[in-house]
């Protein structure tokens, strides 16, 4: 079995909308995969099913051998400790500094302060924010805030990093910086990265595996660098 595997997955919302239909997908450990498609094509639903924010209506979603679809609500937190999540809107706490925003994850896991400090500094250094430990979110640029979000996602060294349009709110140059950070994490830490995006330039430039979704159905799965923009649009 692959590290991440979707088997005949359906997601039908209560209002009758089918967000994902008969999805089959395999992602190996250490892969970097883009999930692309139009707005409301189902890519966010797919991403959310990986960390059990959404439960599939039918089918199985395996992450690291665990069928996430069958996971009890009370055990979901254990899954999420193995998955780092990067959001489009960063989701930082405005009253906490960059350091505190990252440390707060480990504090909530019950780590000792002496264990937390080196881990947080390492995570913030990896995203190039060692000098901004004491800055508050409103004192940082969008790109910097996104890097804090990435540092928070990787501080517990997760096996998977799920990114839901992480460059959606950023200009092209800053987006490039963020992609470099993610690429380095993938290479240096061996973290599997699944990234939903709209950004054609990034997808074309990075030359990674691309999964195309159209109206909730898997419309294409392209190996590294074989994807061309025109095919999806």
């Amino acid at each position: 079995m692959s590290f991440i595997e979707l088997q005949n997955v359906y997601k039908i919302y209560k209002n009758g909308v089918t967000a994902v239909a008969d999805m089959n997908l395999k992602i190996n450990k250490g892969d970097f995969v883009f999930v692309i498609g139009h707005t409301a094509c189902g890519k966010s639903t797919l991403i959310k099913m990986l960390y059990r924010e959404e439960k599939p209506t039918k089918g199985s979603v395996y992450v690291g051998g665990i069928n996430v679809a069958k996971l009890k609500n009370s055990k979901v937190y254990k899954l999420r400790r193995k998955i780092g999540i990067v959001f489009q809107d960063y989701k930082l706490l405005p009253k906490l500094t960059a350091y505190e925003n990252v440390a707060f994850v480990l504090q909530s896991y019950g780590y000792k302060e002496s264990e937390i400090k080196p881990k947080v500094i390492e995570a913030l250094s990896r995203v190039g924010l060692k000098e901004k430990l004491r800055s508050f979110p409103d004192e940082m640029s969008g790109g910097e805030q996104q890097r804090v979000c990435i540092a928070r996602a990787i501080v517990n060294k997760p096996k998977v990093l799920v990114c839901d349009e992480p460059t959606g709110n950023l200009d092209p140059d800053t987006s490039k910086e963020i992609m470099n950070v993610l690429s380095n994490i993938n290479k240096e830490m061996g973290t599997t990265i699944i990234m939903a995006t709209h950004d054609r330039d990034i997808v074309n430039r990075m030359k990674k595996r691309v999964v195309v979704i159209k109206n909730g159905v898997l419309a294409g799965d392209y190996e590294k660098g074989s994807y061309k923009v025109d095919e999806a649009h």
Partner: peptide
Amino acid sequence: KNEIDIMRLVGTSNMVI
């Protein structure tokens, strides 16, 4: 709410929340 949502998403156990 914001803080609770983030805690949920980063894997904080329900009891700790």
